[in-house]
């Protein structure tokens, strides 16, 4: 989408605006020294990351590494105690928040039909809903046959596809996914990955948290590896999987338990 960003100038200021959308650019996203503590415990430790447009970034790491917290902090669900997040150099504002969506590990479906779940997010974003539009969204998620069914009675795979369809209905420029396939069978996992790929093709930046190394290999353009609240590596996917730089990542990929000496001394 970088190519879409024209070096034009906003009428009321000096920020460049996207020629097509008429909105300011939001990439790269940069976190600088993002730190989060809870009752004296450091949950995020000076997390500094740069996330570029157009790529599929996969965040990996053992349980408690701070992957989901990093996602939630960038998405604006939690406020770090220290550090900052910038979007193409500007701080978080309503514009960047409105251009992103998040899919959670639990689908968090509303107690309504599948169709009504899609309509809800469209309405809450101030967009017009029409049967044609909603049908299209459901059809792309291969859920048109359950459009009228209560969303919470769908299978696990269908529920997660609906959650992703609901997020994609907002046409986000940035899509966060927090272990969306954690409880899914292989076929459902591939269906979800197919939806993620279509979102990327449509221009969305993907940031995915996963423990599934196979999925990370299939999806990632670049990998962020975290352990004990710190970013240990941020490399191109091929480089990461071929030769991880940190012993923690090496142990993780080999399926070995790794005790971080830095974490145990904190």
């Amino acid at each position: 989408m970088l190519e879409r960003v024209a070096a034009t100038t906003a009428q009321n200021g000096s920020a460049p605006i996207d020629a097509k959308s008429g909105r300011p650019p939001m990439f790269p996203i940069a976190t600088r020294g993002m730190t989060l503590r809870d009752r004296g415990r450091v949950l995020l430790d000076r997390v500094s990351l740069t996330l570029d447009q157009g790529t599929r970034t996969v965040i990996m790491g053992p349980n408690g590494a701070g992957k989901s917290l990093t996602l939630r902090a960038i998405h604006g669900l939690i406020r770090p105690d220290e550090g900052d997040i910038t979007w193409a150099g500007r701080p978080t504002d309503a514009d960047v928040l409105s251009r992103q969506a998040m899919v959670f590990q639990k689908p968090m479906l509303l107690r309504r039909s599948a169709r009504a779940n899609i309509e809800f997010v469209l309405r809450s974003a101030g967009r017009t809903t029409s049967n044609q539009l909603v049908d299209g969204i459901l059809a792309r998620a291969r859920l048109i046959h359950v459009a009228a069914s209560p969303a919470r009675l769908l299978s696990g795979g269908e529920q997660q596809r609906l959650a992703i369809a609901r997020a994609l209905a907002l046409e986000p420029d940035l899509l966060f996914l927090d272990e969306p396939c954690a409880n899914l069978d292989p076929a459902s996992t591939l269906a979800v990955e197919d939806m993620i790929e279509r979102a990327r093709t449509a221009g969305a930046k993907i940031v995915l948290v996963t423990h599934d190394i196979g999925q990370a290999r299939r999806i990632a353009d670049d990998v962020v590896f975290m352990s004990s609240g710190r970013v240990l590596e941020h490399s191109a996917a091929a480089a990461f999987f071929d030769k991880p730089k940190s012993s923690a990542a090496e142990a993780y990929l080999a399926g070995r338990l790794y005790i971080d000496p830095a974490a145990s001394s904190r």
Partner: peptide, 12 residues
């Protein structure tokens, strides 16, 4: 508790 993250994510 169940929907807080979703509603905040949707900036309701």
């Amino acid at each position: 508790t169940e929907y807080d993250d979703l509603f905040r994510s949707l900036r309701l």
